[in-house]
Simulated assay, not measured.
Amino acid sequence: MAAVLRLPESAAKDVLLVYKYTKSQGVAKLETATDISLEVSGEKVDGITTICKFLASKTKPELLGDGKENQAEVEEWSNWATTTFKSAASKEVHAALQKLNGHLTTRTFLVSNQLSLADLIVFAHVHHVSKNLRVTTTPNVLRWFDLIQNVVIVKNNLVNDFAPLEVNLDDVPEPAAPKADKKKGDKKGDKKEAEKKEEGGKKDKKDKKEKKEKKEKKPAEPAAPEQPVFTRLDIRVGYIRSCKKHEAADALYVEEIDMGDGEGVYRTVVSGLVKWYPLEEMQNRWVIVMANLKPASMRGIKSEGMVLCATAPDGSKVELLSPVDTSKVKPGDRIYIEGLEGEPEKVLPPKKKYFEAVQPDFNTKEDTLAYYQDKPFLIKTASGEPVQCKVATVQGGGIK
């Protein structure tokens, strides 16, 4: 017998979002009531976070976090949101958004590098106070908010419950240069100097305007056609030539990978795979690599790519992707999705969040092959015969 979830008609947006995003209709029957409650086999489940965890565990357990440390952080942020935004007093809201903005300075999602229950719950509360978001004070929250509303709300047709907020990331200002201190002195002299600058500025503007009017107006160039986001990614076949432990981080490997950039040209990639693979298994092996992420420093070593792995739904395994048939591929062969056309970006612009927008749809199925939504990853080979990508054993896992 399915559980029964009871929610007030115009409240508990956090639980409602988790319920609808996880598609828990088959898990719990939704009813309208004056108070929030979840009844499972006659037993009552208390607490918003606990209710959300129950719903997610049944259909999208990956939202709970990968490993105990991340799971604890997901719960911490979820509890923080449900208590902090409860009163919605302006001072508390401002302080909460500032905390969130600081946390998201170097992060795409709240916990780890993937969408979690914390993102859903916090988003529901921030959406309620979204009028307080400003590019000048909370630019990192705005970037995160725009990502979540696109990959969760818009993509899953939940706009009737959570109206999208128009966010122009190009409006996020650069840090302002510090202003020089003005010395106390001759105010009259300062005033005259300011008047001269103002007069000169007016003259310059007038001259520029006259020159501009003399030039012929060029017709506006047509806007570039939009392409599928997946095609902006440069995902390639790579071959690990050598691998060693990172000297400054016990959990990291440093790999030298041939990605087809040219004869004798190899990239350095840093990966957190020490827990999952012994060093000898990281040598001389085929992998699938995200090749156009912006290079990032990891404990003093610049990483020029990211090897893609599948994580088991319960977090018990992490396995590298590789070509199904390595005899037919070479380093640099690109991954494509049938029916999607477009050229990859040279380097993905961090503000656009292209990878983050499609990564939640990377998955493995019962055949352990890699998919984007329901279409398989295909390698474009020299012979023209497509080759699929796989992992060793992980079924129903997310790929990142």
Rank of each mutant, 00 (worst) to 15 (best):
D181H: 12
K245H: 13
R299T: 01
P219S: 09
D66E: 12
V141F: 06
E338W: 02
I36L: 15
V159L: 08
E385M: 05
L340F: 03
T50R: 13
V307I: 15
N79M: 03
V229Q: 01
P376N: 05
L117A: 08
F54Q: 02
E256Y: 01
G189N: 13
E226G: 00
P331E: 07
V45F: 03
V329P: 10
V122G: 00
T381F: 05
K53P: 01
E39H: 11
G264E: 06
T108I: 09
L252A: 01
V358T: 03
V74I: 11
P278K: 13
R143C: 11
K206H: 06
S24C: 15
L97Y: 08
E304I: 04
L308G: 04
R236P: 00
T59Q: 15
L16V: 01
N363L: 08
V394Y: 04
E216V: 15
K86Y: 13
R299E: 12
L273T: 06
A312T: 03
A124P: 06
L273D: 10
V329C: 10
G185M: 11
N132S: 14
S41Y: 10
Y354K: 04
A249N: 10
G396H: 08
K302G: 01
A310Q: 04
V254I: 15
L133I: 06
G396N: 14
N157T: 10
